[in-house]
Simulated scan of single mutants.
Amino acid sequence: MSEVKIAAELRTEFGKGAARKIRREHKVPAVLYGHGTDTKHLTLPGHELLLALRTPNVLIRLQGDGINEIALPKGVQRDPIKGFLEHVDLLLVKRGEKVTVEIPVTVTGDVIGGAILDQQLVTVSVEAEATHIPTGVEVDVDGKDVGYALHAGELALPSGTTLAGDPEALVLHVIGAPTAELPEEGEAAEAGEGEAAAAEAAE
């Protein structure tokens, strides 16, 4: 996974008023923490950060104000109405370090005609090297028939990546298409008699 370089400024003013001022300048307040270091309060450029966060588990290279660190987004707060970034938590990471992240499960192919694919998990939790986090895991269901099931422990994860969640968790399975239940012969007859009686009463 490539790194995205973003200019960082150390922040010395705190509180809601200071945060609003930062946002008016189209910037985003952030904190950087991890490895037992003191938490750093930062200001980051809003547009560049927004573009970077479009990539899941993006690695951000923070540079400026004596800072030259790699970080992984761990918490993103957005305005619930307008959607702009309000605050970001960044976890300090080092090369060679293992981190636990969620990666997407992408399905390709088509199941047998008439069957239905039921995907239970759209992401799985994995452990990977901080600077080599996979973009996701792909599952091919082409030609799979009713009864096929895939559990988390059976996923073909990229090299160097291990499952961090429950290996027995159901990722997806193929089920039969639901069929409408037809009334029993006796029930149909009774229903017909009831409708006839109702029609006579109406007359």
Score class of each variant (00 low, 15 high):
Glu168Asn: 08
Leu121Met: 15
Asp79Ser: 09
Thr55Gly: 10
Val105Asp: 05
Val99Asn: 07
Val93Ile: 15
Gly83Phe: 04
Glu129Met: 01
Thr131Ser: 11
Tyr148Thr: 14
Val124Ser: 10
Ala115Phe: 05
Arg11Cys: 09
Leu92Trp: 11
Gly143Pro: 11
Gly113Asn: 10
Ser2Met: 02
Gly186Trp: 06
Pro134Phe: 10
Val58Gln: 11
Gly96Gln: 04
Glu127Val: 13
Thr161Ser: 03
Leu53Gln: 08
Gly160Ala: 03
Gly143Cys: 10
Glu25Phe: 00
Glu181Lys: 14
Leu32Val: 11
Leu10Lys: 15
Glu185Ser: 05
Ile22Glu: 00
Ile116Gln: 13
Val28Asn: 12
Leu117Ile: 13
His173Leu: 14
Ile175Asp: 08
Pro158Val: 07
Pro178Cys: 02
Arg54His: 15
Gln120Glu: 10
Ala199Asn: 01
Val105Pro: 01
Gly147Leu: 10
Asp38Gln: 12
Glu181His: 04
Ala152His: 08
Asp118Thr: 07
Pro29Trp: 05
Val28Trp: 01
Glu168Cys: 01
Ile103Ala: 10
Ala52Asp: 12
Glu48Val: 00
Lys94Ile: 00
Leu49Ile: 14
Ala199Cys: 01
His26Tyr: 06
Val107Thr: 11
Asp89Ser: 11
Leu157Cys: 09
Asp166Leu: 02
Thr37Leu: 12
His41Val: 09
Pro134Glu: 06
Ser2Trp: 01
Ala8Met: 14
Ile175Ala: 14
Leu32Arg: 13
Ala189Gly: 00
Leu117His: 12
Leu53Phe: 06
Ile112Leu: 13
Thr37Asn: 15
